[in-house]
Computed example of a mutant assay.
Amino acid sequence: MVHSNSSQKIKRTSVREEAYMILRDWIVQGILTPGQQLRDKELAEQLGVSRTPIREALLRLEDEGFVETKPSRSTIVSPIRFEGVLNIYSMVWTLEKLAMEQAFDFIEERHLIEMEAINHEGKKAIDEGNQIVAVQKDNDFHSIYINLSKNDELKRILSGLKQKLIRMELFYFNQVSDVHLSVDEHAQIIQALRSGNLTLVLKVIEKNWKESYFRIQANTECVKSGEEKNE
Rank of each mutant, 00 (worst) to 15 (best):
L193M: 15
I132V: 15
E108I: 08
E121L: 08
T94I: 08
H111G: 02
I189M: 11
G196P: 01
E185M: 08
K162C: 04
S195W: 01
E128I: 04
A125Q: 10
V183C: 02
M100Q: 06
S182C: 02
R156N: 02
M115V: 05
S149T: 01
D138R: 06
N130I: 03
I146T: 08
R167L: 08
H180M: 11
I189S: 04
S159I: 01
E116P: 01
Q102Y: 05
N197P: 05
I146P: 02
F106G: 03
N147K: 11
L200C: 00
T94K: 14
S195Y: 03
A117C: 04
V179R: 13
T94Y: 10
Y145V: 12
V179K: 07
K137L: 06
F141C: 11
K162M: 14
L98R: 14
Q163E: 15
A103P: 00
Q136H: 05
L198C: 04
D127W: 02
L95T: 07
M100V: 09
N151S: 10
N119Q: 12
S195Q: 14
E96L: 09
G196K: 10
L154Q: 07
E153N: 14
T94F: 09
M168V: 13
S195F: 01
G160D: 15
A134G: 09
L200W: 12
Q163P: 00
F104Q: 05
D140F: 10
I107S: 11
D127Y: 02
L98E: 12
I113H: 08
L193W: 10
I157N: 05
L158G: 05
D184L: 13
A103V: 01
D152P: 07
L161R: 09
N174S: 10
F171C: 08
H186I: 11
Q131R: 10
D178E: 15
S182T: 01
I157P: 03
G129K: 13
K137A: 03
K137M: 14
